[in-house]
């Protein structure tokens, strides 16, 4: 089984769009001196973005200069919108002319709150969830849940690297102490959830009807209790082992993936002391290697086989 392939990585190599011809079915790009009609490929795996604005806009510096009178940003936003519309179509066109597609461009972002809402309506157990914007509401929730509340981003957390610094935000536990000493009276509407006292976490990678699940035991180290990614000083790495979702959970989760029209993605759960599987979120562009490698699922081989068996 050996197939030729093209890998389009964001920011890795410059690629330029040559032309699109709907009649002749051509979507021609030039990369590294070579041209490819992307519609010649009959299988596609999409993870995060393939084509980016940088691939279309050669000199983004020019867009920083003003163009219209009395208005500094309209032209930039307008051209970026134009670029995104085109990028959207490029992915759509490739997906629609391919025989086999794993992962879709339009699914690269999911709304966490929408997914939680859908999960609840299907019968999955989810953490009690609120969006609040005042200290008074926070204090009320803290008391109601005995200091066991957490906050996290509604969309993505902060994950930024500048030349000199790296910035990160994680899931944080909010105690009455922190709230009174550190937070302002009112704030930008923020996501609050009742903290799940976990025995272990579960990541389930879903691919076309099958789950490849992993349990993560991180309880033994305090730093990783709220968020297992915070492993800075932990001496022993978290224990990552194969896991079998209980049938009921697996059935409901399959339903959720179907309702969301997703053929792949990675779901997160916390399992509490009673054995209840509390659904947290679906990451539609989840990395499978972080599950595949520790559990020896060889998902990369499964995907390669799916892409080439057409």
């Amino acid at each position: 089984m050996e197939k030729s392939f093209l890998r389009i990585n964001k920011n890795e190599r410059s690629m330029s769009l040559q032309h699109i011809d709907l009649k002749k079915k051509e979507l021609v790009v030039k990369r590294n001196g070579q041209t490819y009609n992307l519609l010649d490929f009959n299988a596609v795996l999409e993870r995060r973005s393939g084509f980016t604005v940088q691939d279309l806009v050669n000199d983004s510096q020019v867009l920083e200069e003003s163009l219209f009178h009395e208005e500094t940003s309209y032209h930039k936003e307008h051209v970026l919108k134009e670029a995104n519309e085109l990028i959207d179509f490029i992915h759509y066109y490739i997906e629609n002319t391919s025989v086999k597609v794993i992962g879709k461009y339009e699914h690269r972002k999911l709304n966490k709150l929408k997914v939680l809402y859908l999960a609840t309506s299907l019968g999955l157990s989810v953490p009690e969830t609120f969006v609040v914007s005042t200290k008074a509401d926070l204090i009320r929730l803290t008391k109601e849940y005995c200091n066991n509340i957490i906050t996290k981003a509604i969309s993505d957390g902060v994950y930024l690297f500048t030349n000199l610094h790296g910035y990160y935000s994680y899931t944080e536990r909010l105690t009455l102490d922190t709230i009174t000493s550190k937070l302002s009276t009112s704030f930008f509407p923020s996501l609050i959830q009742k903290e799940v006292k976990k025995l272990y976490e579960v990541r389930s990678f879903y691919l076309e009807g099958a789950f490849y699940s992993m349990a993560i035991f991180s309880q033994s180290d305090k730093a990783t209790q709220t968020d297992y990614r915070k492993q800075g000083k932990a001496k022993l790495a978290s224990r990552m082992v194969p896991y079998q979702l209980p049938d009921a959970t697996s059935a409901l989760l399959t339903k959720l993936f179907q309702v969301l029209n997703l053929t792949t993605g990675s779901a997160d759960f916390m399992v509490d002391e009673k054995g209840e599987h509390v659904f947290l979120e679906i990451n539609p562009v989840g990395q499978f290697s972080m599950t595949s490698i520790p559990c020896n699922y060889q998902i990369e081989k499964i995907i390669a086989e799916k892409l080439s068996c057409i």
Partner: peptide, 28 residues
């Protein structure tokens, strides 16, 4: 890795989501 907390200006706090109060960073 030495991680530090990013301090938010008191007046700025009301304009940020709560998790911005807990951003940590390190020097690369």
């Amino acid at each position: 890795i030495d991680l530090k907390e990013l301090a938010l200006r008191e007046a700025a706090k009301m304009h940020y989501p709560l998790f911005y109060n807990f951003i940590i960073y390190n020097e690369l």
